[in-house]
């Protein structure tokens, strides 16, 4: 299980926990798993196409990742708003 770390409103949607364990072999699977655990998260990180929203950054063990970035047990997946999103 990977450790998924959330910030801002995503943390509230996911039950208020800063970090939680979620299974999945890549970033998309982990985020879908997070939606299964917390349906309120659906549509907030991944859009209808299964793509990470444009101004959301996902890091795996500190490195920027994409939907298909591999995730192993005990990896740390961090979801953050990107600096490009604010105006």
């Amino acid at each position: 299980m990977a450790l998924v770390c959330l910030h801002g409103p995503l943390r509230n949607l996911a039950g208020g926990r800063a970090a939680q364990e979620v299974g999945g072999g890549d970033v998309r699977a982990v985020l879908r798993g997070l939606e299964d655990l917390h349906p309120s998260v659906a549509g907030w990180i991944l859009d209808e196409r299964g793509a990470i929203r444009r101004h959301i950054n996902v890091f795996v063990n500190g490195e920027r990742g994409g939907e298909q970035t591999a995730v192993a047990a005990e990896d740390r997946v961090e979801v953050l708003p990107a600096i490009t999103g604010g105006t």
């Binding site: 549509g43 859009d47 209808e48 196409r49 299964g50 793509a51």
Partner: peptide
């Protein structure tokens, strides 16, 4: 409260 169902069908080529 966030409304439900405000999305396109999953798996398509477009997002709302």
């Amino acid at each position: 409260t966030q409304a439900e169902g405000v999305a396109l069908p999953e798996g398509g080529d477009e997002a709302l």
